[in-house]
Structures are given as structure tokens and as C-alpha cells.
């Protein structure tokens, strides 16, 4: 103890410097096992907690990135799925069209609706076929459910179709079961009506009404509507027959222009 306490500052200084140099040299020239032991100890004590923290932060960051990528992929896939569903619907529609029996004496010209007009219920539609496709004024237009209307005007590559829902349009029809005749027209306030139908005429709710072919525009036998209500006012010559159109005019998309075979 005396020896230690007698050491002056300069001696202590020398000892410290010598110790640091010696320890550094030991670390320099010691065997790998000693170096590894020191290194492992330092890494375990100082580095591992921070590496763990860093790995955790990176993982959270990666999860966030992955989450954003997945969200983008999900949006893309949802869009793709919606396209596929639309294709499936179109496929189904076209399959049904293949089974569709059209009136004899006519050729079917497939047309797509490119715009419709009318407030509430559409009253006219523009199709993507025109004079170039042999479409002419007054040619009947149908879809797979029944009568849609007639061509009102035709341009080179498109045509305007007057729908049955246009109040100006009239169709000569028959009740399919009784063959009694009348005229179908559409009034915005009352919907589709069978007019000029005798009060005592044979008709019942659920009967099908088809075009009669009279008038020279529409071919006979094309479905127009289903009887949904009958009012027979007393002392009136005509009954008021309400029809449910077979065509949903709000969803028309794929139409056919009936081109007489003699006009090809």
C-alpha cells in the first residue's frame, strides 16, 4: 500500500499509458479466440439490443410498404374482377342471343346502343349502325325479349331508334291467345297501354301481346308486352288495358335491326 500511495502523478500517468498500450497490443496480437471473445461480449452487451430494435423497425416499415403494395394490388384486382364480371355478363347475354329466334324473312343486324335520350324513361336511342350497314328508316328494332322500336333516322354510321316508350309511337298488336287486335302506345303518366281494344274483347291479366304485322313496319308475332291490368268502363266502347313491356327500356344495350331479306 505504501508503495502505491508513494507513486506520484507522473508515475500513475505512465502506468495508465503503458496499460492502454499493452492492452491494445494484446488485442492486436492475441489469438483469434481472445479477440472473438472480446468482440462477442461487446456485441452481445452493446450491439444486439440495437440490432434487435433496428430489425423490428425495419420489419414494421416493410410491413407498411407491403401493406401499401397489397392495397394497390387489391384495387387493381378488384378492377380486373369487375371487368371479368362484365365479360361474363356479356358472354351470358351473347349466349342467349345465339338461341334467339328472330322473325322469318328478316336478317338480324347486331347493333349497340351508344346513347339514349329521354327524361325518366328513355324514348329514343342511337345505335352504332347506319346507312353503311343497310339500315334504313322504319326498319324494326328488337332485342332478345321483344320489340324495341323502329329506326327513325339513319346516318352513315349510326341511326336513331324511336323506342316504344315514345308517346308518338304506335304499334298494331294482337292478344296472342284471343287474336283480338288493338294499338299499343306509351303514355308517360300511365305507362304502356293497349288502346282501341273493345270493351268486351277477350283478354286476361298475364296474356301476351304481340305485334300484328299490320301497318307494314313491324313484323307479326314479336312480343310487345304482358297484360298487367284491365279496366272495362261502363258505357264505353273501349277497355283500358295496362301492359308490362317485355323490354326493359332502361337497360337496353344489345339490339338487332331487322333488315328485310329482299333489301340485302
Amino acid at each position: 500500500m505504501n508503495l502505491l500511495s508513494n507513486l506520484s502523478y507522473s508515475n500513475w500517468r505512465g502506468i495508465h499509458i503503458a496499460l492502454v498500450i499493452v492492452l491494445s497490443l494484446i488485442l492486436l496480437f492475441a489469438g483469434s479466440s481472445i479477440k472473438l471473445m472480446v468482440s462477442d461480449t461487446i456485441v452481445d452487451v452493446f450491439y444486439i439490443p440495437f440490432y434487435t430494435l433496428r430489425a423490428y423497425v425495419e420489419e414494421v416499415s416493410n410491413v407498411n410498404d407491403r401493406n401499401q403494395n397489397l392495397a394497390a394490388e387489391l384495387a387493381e384486382t378488384a378492377l380486373e374482377l369487375s371487368f371479368h364480371r362484365e365479360f361474363a355478363r356479356e358472354n351470358e347475354r351473347l349466349r342467349q342471343i345465339l338461341d334467339f329466334e328472330h322473325p322469318t324473312g328478316y336478317r338480324l343486324l347486331q347493333a349497340k346502343v351508344i346513347s339514349i335520350t329521354g327524361s325518366g324513361v328513355p324514348i329514343s336511342a342511337v345505335i352504332n349502325c347506319g346507312l353503311d350497314d343497310s339500315v334504313m328508316v322504319n326498319m324494326p328494332v328488337i332485342n332478345r325479349f321483344g320489340l324495341v322500336g323502329r329506326v327513325e333516322s339513319a346516318m352513315l354510321d349510326n341511326a336513331e331508334v324511336q323506342l316504344l316508350t315514345d308517346p308518338r309511337n304506335r304499334v298494331a298488336v294482337r292478344v296472342a291467345s284471343s287474336r283480338e287486335m288493338g294499338i299499343v302506345r306509351h303514355l308517360p303518366s300511365e305507362g304502356m297501354l293497349l288502346t282501341a281494344f273493345p270493351n268486351q274483347g277477350k283478354v286476361a291479366v298475364g296474356d301476351t301481346v304481340v305485334s300484328s304485322g299490320l301497318g307494314g313496319i313491324y313484323p307479326p308475332g314479336v312480343q310487345v308486352g304482358i297484360v298487367s291490368g284491365i279496366i272495362r268502363p261502363e258505357n264505353q266502347p273501349d277497355a283500358i288495358v295496362h301492359l308490362q313491356p317485355v323490354v326493359n327500356f332502361r337497360s337496353i344495350e344489345q339490339l338487332f335491326v331487322l333488315i328485310p331479306e329482299d333489301k340485302q
Binding site: 492502454v20 498500450i21 492492452l23 491494445s24 497490443l25 494484446i26 488485442l27 492486436l28 496480437f29 483469434s32 479477440k35 472473438l36 472480446v38 468482440s39 461487446i42 456485441v43 452493446f46 450491439y47
Partner: peptide
């Protein structure tokens, strides 16, 4: 610490 071979040099 990550490179034990250089530990002595750095400390010195």
C-alpha cells in the same frame, strides 16, 4: 467490435 482483427488498432 464487428471486426475483431482491427480492435487493437482502433483502441490504440
Amino acid at each position: 467490435a464487428g471486426d475483431p482483427q482491427q480492435m487493437g488498432w482502433f483502441s490504440l
